[in-house]
């Protein structure tokens, strides 16, 4: 065994035990990282459902969270790579700008809400309002998603390997939705659309990024905006 390598990896991994120190110590340390530093590996133990774990990262750090988290984990992430080895409460990766967030368990409501970029991977199920008002984020959910997901989604991709709940893509703009299973119902102005070669190519790329190898892009159906609610039309008054 090469002890020098082992020692180096121990030195560069900073461990924050949230049973022993306040959350602010962790988040302050993450915010204090200067560009270009090599001190980029963090581990969080005993999160015990804490809120706002690892929010506001703006450097390419790696954070491994050993347990389940509460509200808003990895919110506003810009370039970090955060993995939660557990489940996440409401608003995980809310308003992500770039980077990667992986949830090994389930995610509660409004996962990835308003996200502008980056990749959110949820290995379990996501609850209601997944990807609400998404603005460029890519979200891959390996299980099912709840009702009102991708509500008013503007851009980005939502890929669901399981089923979608009621009112998928209600009042959708240009976010692209791909569901492999059943969709319980489509929201206002959301329709099924043709899965064209460029979509298959994008799906293959997202599945690959999410580490999914046993699912083919051709197994998905695509949903998008019918674009009839973009501009006010008196005949559509009931649909608003």
């Amino acid at each position: 065994m090469d002890l020098s390598v082992k020692r180096e990896s121990l030195e560069t991994m900073r461990v924050f035990d949230l049973a022993k120190m306040p959350l602010r110590d962790l988040n302050s340390a993450l915010h204090a990282i200067a560009p270009g530093t090599n001190d980029t590996n963090f581990e969080v133990v005993n999160p015990r459902g804490s809120h706002a774990v690892a929010v506001g990262i703006d450097q390419p750090v790696t954070v491994e969270v050993r347990g389940s988290v509460g509200y808003y984990c990895a919110g506003m992430n810009d370039g970090g790579s955060v993995t939660v080895h557990g489940s996440a409460g409401p608003g995980v990766a809310e308003n992500m700008m770039s980077g990667t967030v992986v949830i090994e368990g389930d995610a509660s409501q409004y996962a990835g809400a308003t996200g502008r970029g980056g990749l959110l991977v949820i290995k379990g199920n996501a609850a209601s309002r997944c990807g609400i008002s998404m603005k460029g984020i890519d979200i891959v959910v390996q299980g099912n998603i709840g009702h009102m997901s991708a509500f008013m989604g503007q851009s980005g991709h939502l890929v669901v390997l399981g089923n979608a709940g009621d009112a998928l893509g209600d009042s959708l703009y240009e976010a692209k939705l791909f569901v492999r299973g059943e969709v319980k119902s489509l929201g206002a102005d959301c329709i099924q659309k043709e899965l064209r070669p460029e979509h298959i190519e994008k799906l293959a790329e997202l599945l690959d990024k999410a580490g999914i190898t046993d699912v083919k892009p051709q197994e998905f159906k695509r949903y998008g905006s019918a674009r009839t609610l973009y501009n006010f039309n008196i005949d559509n008054a009931d649909a608003y």
């Binding site: 509460g70 489940s87 409460g89 409501q109």
Partner: peptide, 25 residues
């Protein structure tokens, strides 16, 4: 609509409810 949060846990010993997972840890 289910805006109000809820988490449940079940084992052989109990069924538990909390507004947040923190209540169950």
């Amino acid at each position: 609509i289910a805006c109000k949060p809820a988490v449940m846990a079940e084992t052989d010993q109990y069924i538990a409810f909390g507004s947040e997972y923190r209540a169950l840890v």
